[in-house]
Design a protein around this nucleic acid. Sequence first.
DNA 1: GAAGACCGGTTGTAGACTGCAAGTGGTTCT
DNA 2: AGAACCACTTGCAGTCTACAACCGGTCTTC
Lengths: 172, 172
Amino acid sequence: MDEGRSGCPINLSLEVLGDRWSLLIIRDMMFGNRRHFRALLTQSEEGIASNILADRLQRLTQLGMITSAPDPRHKQRVLLSLTEPAIQLVPVLAHLGAWGRRHLPVTPELAIRAEVLELGGPALWERFMDELRELHLGLARPSGTPSVLAELTAAYLAEVEKMSDPGRSLTS
Amino acid sequence: MDEGRSGCPINLSLEVLGDRWSLLIIRDMMFGNRRHFRALLTQSEEGIASNILADRLQRLTQLGMITSAPDPRHKQRVLLSLTEPAIQLVPVLAHLGAWGRRHLPVTPELAIRAEVLELGGPALWERFMDELRELHLGLARPSGTPSVLAELTAAYLAEVEKMSDPGRSLTS
DNA sequence: GAAGACCGGTTGTAGACTGCAAGTGGTTCT
DNA sequence: AGAACCACTTGCAGTCTACAACCGGTCTTC
């Protein structure tokens, strides 16, 4: 447990999240709403290996970033949920995505969510965190607030459409 | 180069920064104003190994996060500088530090900088980035702005003093 | 109610990465 | 001239990673 040996906030954060996969898993649970082992395994953009996914899920559970519980609808399924600390990573991920979008060779359809999130600013992040608290912690969110997840997904799909068929908007 | 295989901004960011050491090196260059190999090696809180430091410096240089140039004052020394993309990590580090401070077992004297940075908000970050551009890129910063680095260091030293000698404030 | 797909994993293996100690050739300080 | 300092490099043992194959149990479908 006392692996790295400094109490610096950034060092401790890196001990939790500073590897190639942990943050990607949290990203997929957050923005892709993946809640099961199989969904994370097969729908991962980056192609994580099953043993690594199993290891990271266990690790993140021990660290208090996610919880797992049997899925009431499918007996063999395990439902994964983000905890409050993980949900509070939204601003970090928003900033990290904005930075990557600005300085690295991103692909448009994968960058659009980062763009929406950046343009939305802290107000949008708060709404998104409330939505995640509803989905993952069962806390009702303020009524009348539209779904940020739906907005992000719609923007992504619109971008995919635009890419695959650039002239479509004029027809049908 | 095409290691991980997605153009997602967060994935690409992790490919650059997602290991145990790269961000710590940037942190030390930023907040500790360490500009030489030896300073990074011996004054690192976490105790990085020399071969790993050499490897990461080379990697970060190739990725365009830092540059190195001979130090005019000492022939054998290499002066390391942050590039503009690295400087723009300030908001990311500020958020990451704030998150770590809130959710992980940090030590007070190492957390104080994260606290100052969080309380200062985006305005302070901008001032700090201007200061880093002056120190690392040679760009003059707006006149009349006090040094954020000095403020952070003073807060750190005050916290160390408070820790090592809690009753001191009443005497002498 | 049997076949086959699906579920969350585990195992084996090879290769890459990490951390530590020691050492290198050259430079600066005294 | 001698000692300390500089930015690295080397050797080695241990750990972590990736890939493919493989589990036993469960759910769907006919």
